[in-house]
Design a protein around this nucleic acid. Sequence first.
DNA 1: TTTCATGATTGGCT
DNA 2: AGCCAATCATGAAA
Length: 447
Amino acid sequence: MANDPSHYGQQPGMAPAHMPPGVPGYGMGQDGVPGPETEHRKQEIGDILQQIMTITDQSLDEAQARSELRKHTLNCHRMKPALFQVLCEIKEKTVLSIRGAQEEEAPDPQLMRLDNMLIAEGVAGPEKGGGSSAASTASQAVSGGGPGTPENAIEHSDYRAKLAQIRQIYHTELEKYEQACSEFTTHVVNLLREQSRTRPIAPKEIDRMVSIIRRKFTAIELQLKQSTCEAVMILRSRFLDARRKRRNFSKQATEVLNEYFYSHLSNPYPSEEAKEELARKCQITVSQVSLFFIKRVVILLCSLVVLLASLSVCGQVSNWFGNKRIRYKKNIGKAQEEANLYAAKTAAAAATASNTQQSPEPPSDPGASNYNPLGSRGSSGQLSGGQGMYMSLNGENQYPTASSVGDNSQGYSGEAMPSSTSGMYDSHMGQPPQWFFHDSPCAISSI
DNA sequence: TTTCATGATTGGCT
DNA sequence: AGCCAATCATGAAA
């Protein structure tokens, strides 16, 4: 009404409707100068305003009073309980029964899975044993239940600490959600009970509302449980990854083990005392040392079997030789350069020695140097004299082909490669080239 | 994350 | 079929 434009369109000079008749303008004389008449009108206007205010107040109060009166009348009406009961029954038979049927809820399988997982991981359920058992399960998953090292213990406790942290956060959040759910449910129930005095609300309706609220909070809990499970999974995978990384020995340990292996080639498998010593040096277990040497010996023997018995050369060996040839050629330029460098150094040393000792020993021929051009792994070892069976850097490439394996006419002369293992590594033969062991196909044992 | 070594694959050539 | 060269995939080391 107040916004009705028609109220703003009164004709000029007309007094407002609520004004007493005969009151022109706004209490001003024709000339605009206030006089005794004006004062009287002011008084009248003041009275009118007062009346308006009073009327407004009265109407509000009355409205309230009327509302309360209506409520009271309704509450006290003798037919009210019967009427509400009928209405509630109708509601239950129609809307509530239908909805109720739809909302028959079975236990959520996802929630059950999450709950089971949280209990299994030691996040939910009894605290003692949960976390530690899960941690030990995780640690043994990789270690194979072997003897624990101090490092394992550190990782173990680290895992447990992190799991305990997750557990604490989970329980705090869960408690928070449960409290909020409880408070909100109580609030809504009270509200509905209050409203049930003025409108028909069946007890079932209240129950239904409570279950709706619980479902909503369950959905939130589901998210919490899911994210907790994810956190545990991430923690676990990190823990396992960290352990998996230690699957290989450190470079230093490998060097120590290799050194022993190559310096005991005639009998490369160490004694118990030697194993203990190596384990101490390499900071690994004795069983790990044993495993290293078992693998080495097996690889060595398999390589020898494949190479010396002229067995059918499988694709793997073929690839190996192919790659070796190509990379040998690629590296040969660089190798030649480095060989010359090495030879120059040797020559310089020999010259110095001859100057001091007057030794007739001639300097080494750069082309016949013992340098091994097969990459860093192959070049790490020093070859004794006469071992350059494929290292003819200044001449034709005598590198073996797959088809030449076992064929002594190419590369494998009886002088360079004995036909049997016996005496192969005798002192007069020196050691085989380092690449022979270093570059043996790793998976060759699977042949 | 980058670099390196190495096994494997692919296509062309003889 | 065997070899060569280029390239990819992968694990280890720096």
